[in-house]
Nucleic acid binder design. Structure first.
Lengths: 199, 199
DNA sequence: AGTGTCAATTGACACGGCGACAAGTGGTGA
DNA sequence: TCACCACTTGTCGCCGTGTCAATTGACACT
């Protein structure tokens, strides 16, 4: 936090992120990132040991500037199980389009690179914890659909909220982000919330 | 159907399929396929113009020997909408583990190769037609959950049955194939079939 | 025998992208 | 003045895909 060039590492991360967003996570090479950061290709390797590492750090950087943590506050503060579920779904589905480009790149890398695989899996495990917390809150309220035990319910919710499903519904089936969010929420309710006996 | 060497093209396809299965769709190179087929690397290019083309043809070959068409007969013959839905889900979920290795390889290729992307998308469009037929049959019977219009219901079912979801639930969440099939079927019912007013 | 054809082989090569290495260069502070 | 630091320049190796040209060996026709 001192040099005229505001921290090369940060410039590289920014460049990486911008390119990922521009290409929707596709076709971003080390040389492209370097060029955009106004730095030599080798300088990138001075800061990141490999392409996998750069992608991992880029997603962490994005989490940081996009406030991944703050987004979860309403969910944690929800009082009822259903409110917690809804708040979590709301936060995650709104976050999905933001992380999609870098998630896609990391997912592609995951196929061949062990570090990338590990980083992605960790990320998804963290996200699963949010699912689990929501399911637990539902159960505490006696609102969990008895068709599923908590483990299975968590996995189903986790699946429902996956990046790949967002990709399929919005990019292939052509759903708007709003339609996606609404339908996923109502589907989660149908699957997980105890059907009302009567009213 | 005559030479001592039973058709080189076929030997290559078999080799490709075996390697894909052995590696769960990962790390299969042209040279590996050639070696396993007992043929030079160049011979592979004599029969398939590119790696993408080889993968595409391998999945078609697999469809052929695994009877992808026959599997759909029970679904087409079902009388009620719910029976049709169940038969389709049963056929597809049982087919998924079979095609997974080649599907995975093709999905990876899809990211970078236009031909592979087109072939995969076509495959998935075909599968979607099965979903659509089941939803239409449900609707005809007045059994479609009014929470969804037929389009949306089809897309939801399509999403539910995706290769990626099978991969996540069985390979990551660790569900058995049986648990997967049962849960997906019951989830499809919860989502798509009209809730009984009473009984 | 002689000729043509066809499938396949051999070996070499170009290319793109990642990653490593070595020898500079230029600015800063002790 | 010297040393250090971040960075540059240029070069190189590796890998996997895809191409090309020359050759071989089997068969078929005449």
């Amino acid at each position: 936090m001192s040099s005229a060039q505001p921290d090369t590492r940060l410039r590289i991360l920014k460049a990486s992120l911008e390119l990922l967003e521009a290409g929707q996570g596709q076709g971003v090479r080390m040389a492209d990132v370097a060029k955009r950061a106004g730095v030599s290709r080798q300088a990138v390797y001075l800061h990141f040991e490999s392409r996998a590492e750069l992608l991992i750090q880029t997603t962490l950087y994005l989490d940081d500037i996009a406030g991944s943590q703050e987004r979860l506050i309403p969910s944690r503060e929800a009082t009822t199980g259903v409110a917690r579920l809804d708040a979590f779904i709301e936060a995650w589905t709104a976050y999905l389009p933001i992380i999609y480009p870098s998630a896609r790149a990391l997912l592609a890398m995951r196929e061949t690179d062990e570090d990338a695989a590990h980083a992605w899996d960790q990320r998804m495990r963290d996200m699963r914890e949010g699912c689990e917390a929501a399911v637990t809150a539902l159960q505490r309220d006696g609102q969990l659909n008895p068709a599923h035990d908590p483990q299975e319910a968590t996995d189903l919710l986790w699946m429902l909220l996956s990046v790949r499903n967002w990709e399929q519904l919005t990019r292939i089936s052509g759903w708007s982000q709003e339609a996606y969010a609404a339908k996923i929420r109502s589907s989660a309710h149908q699957l997980l919330v105890m059907p009302k006996a009567s009213k």
